[in-house]
Amino acid sequence: MSAIDMLDLFSGGLSFLFTVLILSYLIGDNPLFRIAVYVFVGAASGYVAAVVFWQVLYPLLVLPTLSAIQSASLAQGLYVLMPWLGLILILMKVSSRLSGLARIAMAFLVGAGAAVTLVGALTGTLIPQFNATIDIFGGAVGKGGFELVELLFSGGVVLLGVISTLAYFHFGAHPKADGSMRRLAPVEILAWVGRIFIGITLGVVFAGVYATALTALIERISSLINFIASLFGMF
């Protein structure tokens, strides 16, 4: 029995154990379930810390710093100086007295992140999705017969779904004669239709989540069976 096999056996045993511990939650909340969860959190966070160091800080900060020191390059030094400064500032968050200084680095992160997400949303989602909605009947060009009707109908439904969903999220209201605040009648109708489309979409998502969860449960039960089978096969 090789070390890998021993390692696989040990890993399979851990997997079996933690799976059972977690599935014990079907009976109810119990200490075993909590033990598994706490150990999982600790192991995951420790692993993440190691990953961050070896796959982020080491290649992007430590090695360039060593390289800059070795080469005595001013440009490289300046390049790595700012991250070190930001690192120090962020580490200030640990101190309650100096945590305010961390805002500087956080401001940099937020500003850069805002710019990235802003442009991404604009160029990656808004414009392409608007273009796709505008060109929703473009596929019907050159088509005829039932296919044309199907494309036109499908395109109309999608268009209605988009508009009605956006109308559902439109909360501008106008006062009515009785003082109540209501949306305009067309918007109100579209919003009602939008509720249906959103319900359908969430139903699809729900089914997808269920499918994912079901697959995960199947995989876990399969792993349990396989581990038991492997034990019996081994012995």
């Binding site: 990656g124 392409p128 999705q129 273009n131 796709a132 999608v158 979409t201 699809v204 998502v205 089914a207 997808g208 989540v209 499918a211 994912t212 697959t215």
Partner: peptide, 26 residues
Amino acid sequence: SSAQATPMIMPYYDSGQVTGVVSGLY
């Protein structure tokens, strides 16, 4: 993608930003 993420990825496929989608176990 996972089956749970596919519905929200489909608009990108419909817009041509995604070439193809393989959704979960199905």
